[in-house]
Each structure stands twice: as structure tokens, then as C-alpha cells.
Design a protein around this nucleic acid. Sequence first.
DNA 1: CGGGATCCCAAGCGATACTG
DNA 2: CAGTATCGCTTGGGATCCCG
Lengths: 237, 237
Amino acid sequence: MATRAARGFGQYSGVARAVERVGERWALLIVRDLLGGARRYSDLKASLPRIPTNILSDRLKELQEAGVIRRVPTVRGGYELTELGHGLEPVVAALERWGWAVLGEPGEAETVSSDSLAFALRAAFRPDVAATLPPTEYVLHVAEVSLSAIVVGATLDVAPVGQGALPQPRRRSALEPVPQTVLELTVAPAALRDLLSGTDAARPRLDADPELVDRFTRTFRIEPAAPTPGALEVGVA
Amino acid sequence: MATRAARGFGQYSGVARAVERVGERWALLIVRDLLGGARRYSDLKASLPRIPTNILSDRLKELQEAGVIRRVPTVRGGYELTELGHGLEPVVAALERWGWAVLGEPGEAETVSSDSLAFALRAAFRPDVAATLPPTEYVLHVAEVSLSAIVVGATLDVAPVGQGALPQPRRRSALEPVPQTVLELTVAPAALRDLLSGTDAARPRLDADPELVDRFTRTFRIEPAAPTPGALEVGVA
DNA sequence: CGGGATCCCAAGCGATACTG
DNA sequence: CAGTATCGCTTGGGATCCCG
């Protein structure tokens, strides 16, 4: 369509092109969910309860045209990321980390999805710290979703507690001895935010082994809008 | 406005919240330009030639409400990032890097702005490699913009060749001896893309010292959609 | 003259109904 | 289950106008 050109930003720039491709409303949330593995149309619709079905349909088409996702040939209504789509992981992870700093309290009618929670854990995971700790399974219950995060060495393996939807490559932890140490936590969404940001506020109220809770907060952390030490800080002038 | 709630995604999630705050059309391009330092309304309008003036005005208001930018008190029409806004740098940098992989050829009517080029260089800068090379100034002419990038050790200092608009903290290189080695390059936008992505295609046609060109391509590089080795790769299942 | 505000139209979004 | 069709509403685009 000619609209594409008209909707562009008129700039030959990386950011502009990226936003043209994946900046439409809902698009990056779809990508985030697909970063957890292949999903069916109905899975996405369930994970994103407020997305209108025509918009989901439009976005899936556009993301296919952009080469970000493809259909899973063997599954009706199945979609998965292409390699290019997987390249968006740093983008989505950066958004996730910044977003936690401005999360605030949950609005009424705001829900927590299994995919969003799983992605948050993966974005918060600190492999270097985890490598120094014993193997542990964390079972989280947040609002109406539950998932299990198994940490062995520097690796993290997250899966919903119910069970997965599409046949995925079997979780790695099924191939190995599962750690005996299990921390089961039931927390409100905002309390999880405090836990992950290192705020001590939520911790004392948790009815769980304090040492394991400490292990959790050291393994998973999202700094509140870190000023990002790195190449880009240099020479801003 | 009550629209804000209605326009939300209904999810208590970092990505969702981030996109609600800075996902509106043009918003991240404004942030990108402000990552180069404070800018006036007219600077932004000139950097983003296709933005309607009302949209620029709306976005600036929204970004202020979101705590991402603030006005510069001493300068009429001046805006700058807050600390929270600076926290978006990893987001914009990740978009920039992914965007280069899908840049393609410049569309007709697509332009290159000084701010976008400067940001691309900063996103492509590899401080660890630069630290091993002698101090060098690179003067780039791409389409109708020109800028100077001074690399000394692991630090990069980019400035437009004309001159800056708002009084900025003086560029660091003004305080130090400027490197005598200067590489001046005049390249088409798409050729710069090839240079930065490490493709050898553009190099032989450059009329410049091959060793300095090599130094440039080692100092500045954007891998074409790297599969990002890191925490998030682990345990996708 | 730079920094915005107003207007109108077109395009995109959201809700619901409907079909293979 | 996996979408398509339709319709009203909201937002963005472009030009113009206003104000200090």
C-alpha cells in the first residue's frame, strides 16, 4: 500500500526503520510473547486479553511481511519468531527493564499474563550471580498465574505451572536432575516489583525462608532505570 | 484525559508500561535526538522534518508528563532529558542496532539528520576496540550532513561540523589535544550502512587511506541483527 | 520570527458480529 | 479455532493561524 510510505518517518535511520517495522501498537507485545516460544492465535489472544481480533490479525500479517515472524507449518494458527525476530530480544528486554521503573501500581482491570511474567523473570535474571548459588527452583504465584523458574548454574528455565500450549523443545531441566531446593512464593504484582527492584519493603512480609528469598532477590533483579554505564554514555556532547 | 486508561494495554507488565509511555508515534525519535543533548523546539522540528507541529507539541507535553523530558529553564523552547529519560538509552540503542539490519536502501524522500547519524555512530562505537587504537578524528560527510567523531582511547566525542545549536557542555575534546590523524570520508548513506555492518562491499571504492578506513570499521560496527548472546538466550523453552 | 495552537480530513484503532 | 467484515471513534497528518 502507498500508506506505508506515507506512514514512514522520512528518515534513513536505524531507529526510524525499526519503529516503522515493529512500532505499531501491540506489535512488540506480540513479539515479547513469541520470545517465549511458538504460540497459536488463540494463545496470543488469551495472553493479550484486550487486543481486538482484527488488530491481532493485522499485526501478525505485518510482522510476517517484515520477516519478524513466520507460521509454524505443522500447527494451524501457529506462529514463531524468525531469526530476525529473535534479534529483537535486546529491544524488548531493554523496554522491559525500563518499564519496571515506571510500573507504578496495577491499574484496575490490569492483569498479569504468564508470558509477561516469564519474560520479566528472564529479563531480570543475572547469570553471573546465579552461577555462584546452588541449584534452586522458584515457584511463583502472582495474581492468577503460576510459573516455575529453575536455576541451575548460570542457566534459567522458565515454564508455566499449568502446562505449555504448543509442543516446545522440551525444557532443559527435564533432562537433568531437578534441584531439591524449592522456594514457593505467592506475591501480589506490586510486591513482586519491589522484590525485583531490590526494595526491601516486600521482603519481611513474606512467609518463607529468608535465606531463599534473599537468594531469589540476588538471582533476579531489575535495577530501577539504571543510568546504563556503557559506550553510549561517553561523549554525549 | 480518560483516553489514557482506554489506550492502555490492560497488562501489568514492564514492556506494556514502557510502550504506553514512550511508544507513541515519533516519541522515541524525539528521545533519540535529545540523547544528543538539549534541543529547541525548532531544532527538533528541523531534525524530524516530517513531524507535524501539533504532534511534536503533543509528544513533548506527554513526555514531560511521563517524566522523560523537562524544559530547559534558561532557554525558550528548550527541552532536555530527565534522568529517567536518559534511562531510555539502552532501548533506543537496541532499536538502532536492530534497525540497521533492516535498513535497506534509502527510500526516495528519506533524509539523514545530523542527530540520527551521531546516534548511529555512538550506538556502533566499540570502546574496547577503540582503546587499542591511536587517537583519531573521523570527519564524515553523509548526504547533506557532516559531523566529526573524535576517538581518544575508549572515549568517543561526536559533534556536528557546522556547530551545535544549544549551549552544551563543551565537547571534551576541546579540552584536550586533538588527534592529528584525521580520516575524512564522503559516503552515500547505504555505503555507510555497509561500512558499519562490516560488509566489505563499500570499502574498495573509498578514496582514502585503507589503513584508516580499516581503523574506522573496527572502531564502529553494528552487527547485522546479532542473535545476542546473553542472559535471555538461556532457557527459552 | 520562533514557538506553538487550531482546524479538517484521512488513516488507524477498538468493539462486535460474522464466516470457513 | 482462526480469522474476516463492518462501523463508529480516536489519532495522526498537513496546512493554516495566532501570539509573544
